[in-house]
Write a protein that binds this DNA or RNA. Structure first.
Lengths: 150, 150
DNA sequence: TCTGTTATTGCAATCACTTGCAGTTGCGAG
DNA sequence: CTCGCAACTGCAAGTGATTGCAATAACAGA
């Protein structure tokens, strides 16, 4: 967590957006909580230091950061989660377990061939930074006696 | 549309659920509208023939049908769309264009290798019937002069 | 056909998220 | 340092989806 939130703040400013305390607090909340966090976690965390914070501002900030590709939104089916973008070399996607709700990462490389094929066959340019696969994690699949069929 | 909605109703009953007129109307609305339909389209359509219909019932019915894998939910980013499940031989996934919002199908075979690799490497059993890739369709990508990078 | 059980419905309240607006404030120009 | 403008915030109202609950109705069994 080497002040990645500060770095992103600078980038915000560089792109012509205002550097408000609220935005800083949202970013440091995500950084402090350690990624894969929900809106309410962020909101509560910020409220601890700034009680006037409004949920609307959290939502608007996250929308902005998402649009600028400074945070990644992970759609889990039951409310979205957010994380700060990582290094280009650390590109990854997400697997969300339908049973326990846990989010796991997997390297982007796994999805590159799919991406290529969709472009080749259909001309569709997939944006795989908002890419989430749902299913059962190893632990939950084990409990249910599920194999690879489904 | 060879009475696929009726067939699904039978399956509902076979699984121990009640065969109510409301459920029948939701299914025939989807069938009649021709797949890839939103909640409100279904709701309005059913209201034409049964004015007492409540949105809550539409949502609950869709949730049930989704859970039983009798309808497929396509998460488009701006409200979900629904379609009746197709034949096993016709399995497919969805590409949603971020620009124009159109939903396209692609054969499930394209995603099979990804599925296999996730299971092999992480033990994660992906459920790829709820699988949607967002990006730009050929037409919109062309307009924007986008190539395959992104 | 009638009856009892319990899933399901319709309504209203609630939750989650978004939007309109007026006041505030970051920040660049002077 | 001060000024002015537009971006941004907080509030409150609005929209879309979900949930609790009492009344209703599907359907198995008699």
């Amino acid at each position: 967590m080497a002040r990645r939130d500060i770095e992103i703040l600078e980038r915000l400013k560089a792109q012509g957006h205002r550097l408000t305390p609220q935005r800083g607090m949202v970013l440091s909340a995500i950084a402090g909580l350690g990624g894969h966090v929900g809106v309410d976690q962020i909101f509560q965390r910020v409220r601890e230091v700034y009680p006037y914070m409004d949920v609307a501002t959290v939502y608007r900030t996250l929308q902005l950061l998402k649009r600028l590709h400074l945070v990644t939104e992970i759609v889990t089916g039951s409310g979205a989660q957010y994380e700060l973008v990582r290094q280009e070399t650390d590109r990854h996607h997400h697997m969300v377990c339908e049973q326990c709700g846990t989010t796991f990462d997997f390297p982007a490389s796994y999805a590159e061939s799919l991406r290529g094929e969709l472009t080749r066959a259909f001309g569709f340019v997939a944006h795989l930074d908002h890419f989430t696969v749902s299913g059962l994690c190893a632990a939950c699949a084990g409990k249910q006696g599920v194999s690879t069929g489904g």
